[in-house]
């Protein structure tokens, strides 16, 4: 028994329909919206600004802080309790780690750049959408960074390697693995790699190659979103 046709009729390496826009929140220094399938992420960047509590200040460089939040009725299941949870804390941490490697805040000692990502509508791949949106928002805020970070999930459903799993596929009644990946564009370095489920070594290597191609598609979208903001009407 293998997974030969995807639930929503996509090709194996095809991503869900995507949409991105930069500069959607006027009060933020930089902001972005990323939609991928039924997942929507809004990212807002504030700063560099003064960092409190003071003991967190680093006199050598500025730091990055992340917030990740799913809204109460954003998922397809039960109401999600708003506020901090184990899961949102973990995702905020991995987001921060995957983004900060490319951000250069050496010109802003003792300062902080805050990234807030909220998701009003979710259907799998939220941390990937969050990282992709945060990356656009950071560029929009004019934060110096060496490269853009693009993120997408890959995985295996019943022996078939797929890109950008939807919730129906993650919940498929077979052996499933879900691997969110974030990559830099130029060097293809992996800045986020997590996994849920099980997968063979061969299929893992295959899915990472697929992720490399898939993140390129996300990158094209990110680039378009940023350039559209400044195109002459």
């Amino acid at each position: 028994m293998t997974y030969t046709e995807r639930v929503d009729g996509r090709k194996f390496d095809e991503l869900r329909p995507m949409e991105a826009k930069a500069g959607v929140i006027p009060n933020a220094d930089g902001s972005a919206l990323v939609k991928i399938g039924k997942t929507t992420a809004y990212a807002a960047v504030y700063g560099p600004r003064e960092l409190f509590p003071r003991f967190k200040q680093n006199p050598k460089t500025g730091i990055v802080r992340c917030h990740y939040g799913m809204m109460p009725f954003s998922g397809s299941g039960e109401r999600i309790r708003p506020g901090n949870s184990r899961r949102s804390q973990e995702i905020a941490m991995v987001m921060e780690k995957s983004l900060k490697v490319m951000i250069d805040l050496s010109a802003f000692p003792n300062a902080v750049v805050d990234i807030y990502v909220d998701l009003p509508q979710t259907d799998a791949g939220t941390r990937c959408a969050a990282i992709s949106a945060a990356s656009i928002a950071l560029a929009d805020a004019g934060i110096p960074m060496k490269d853009m970070i693009s993120s997408v999930a890959v995985g295996e459903v019943d022996g078939t390697v797929l890109a950008d799993l939807s919730y129906d596929e993650e919940a498929y009644d077979a052996i499933v693995s879900d691997i969110p990946v974030a990559m830099t564009h130029n060097t293809k370095e992996i800045t986020l790699l997590q996994m849920d489920g099980e997968i063979t070594k061969e299929n893992l290597m295959k899915s990472l190659e697929m992720a490399s191609v898939a993140t390129d598609k996300v990158y094209e979208l990110q680039m378009k979103a940023l350039k559209d903001k400044f195109s002459r009407e």
């Binding site: 220094d29 930089g30 805020a141 004019g142 110096p144 960074m145 060496k146 490269d147 940023l226 400044f230």
Partner: peptide, 26 residues
């Protein structure tokens, strides 16, 4: 040579530079 911020390309002789379109005040 790579860009580090969102901005406009400028070439001054042999030097490549970027004029930022957004960003904090230094």
């Amino acid at each position: 040579i790579f860009s580090k911020v969102l901005g406009l390309v400028g070439v001054a002789g042999r030097v490549m530079k970027i004029t930022p379109l957004s960003g904090p005040y230094l």
